[in-house]
Design a protein around this nucleic acid. Sequence first.
DNA 1: TGTATCGTACGAAATTTGTCGTACCTTTAA
DNA 2: TTAAAGGTACGACAAATTTCGTACGATACA
Lengths: 129, 129
Amino acid sequence: MKSNQAENNLPEPTKAELEILQVLWEFGPSTVRFVNDKLNELREVNYTSTLKQMQILAEKGILKRDESQMKHIYIPVEAEEKTKDQLLNRFVNTLYKGSASKLMMQLLGNEKTSKKEIEEIKRLLDSME
Amino acid sequence: MKSNQAENNLPEPTKAELEILQVLWEFGPSTVRFVNDKLNELREVNYTSTLKQMQILAEKGILKRDESQMKHIYIPVEAEEKTKDQLLNRFVNTLYKGSASKLMMQLLGNEKTSKKEIEEIKRLLDSME
DNA sequence: TGTATCGTACGAAATTTGTCGTACCTTTAA
DNA sequence: TTAAAGGTACGACAAATTTCGTACGATACA
């Protein structure tokens, strides 16, 4: 049985794990209680479920934690940018054989991408050089 | 227990399902045997595993099949573009709160995105209006 | 016509992912 | 000094996904 981590060393965050990461990215290092409360604004989750997920994330090395207090504080090991980069790479590789411009075309042809967004992108590119 | 298909009506293709779709997109309508051979160029999979997956895909309505011959021919129901669009939307929504331009920035800042790709993208945008 | 080959059907095991119950420790405050 | 509140640890269960074994029908051809 082969691993499917062809080009990445980091284990891939699962969907539930991503949810947690997003809270930490948005609000910074947090306790399980805080994260769980945030998640429960969207859907019902048991406190211990969130706890378990965060412990798993810590085991995997995706989060680290400060145990100096009883209320452990969890912190993403990698910066938001870096993790998203990896996910994006994986996505481009999987669906577009690694071609960023192909993805772009898809994005631009996508009706859900607004004119405003497209303008924004153009401005971005012009200001790059 | 809630479904997680917030904004999509189509069931989300899983990882193994995507592999199969990619073969069909690349080579057109195919038999299980053909798809399985292709998959085995990458990793070891049992014929009946692939068969089962493709049957499940057919059940879900992602593939349809021509049963007029003994060797059933499987065909994606939706065009490649459309399916990828949905996946892309989901991806942008999940990671970039729906902002295509944020995704772009990430893509452009990504070292794996070559200068050539960036040029390609610019040309694309210029020719758009 | 029988046997080897190649196909589908399908239940069930294996794996991965997600959820939760329960035990138990620490802090707080009456 | 004890009861309540709130924390972590962790095994077990549940659900979703993936893989496979076995049964059995079609076809080919010696």
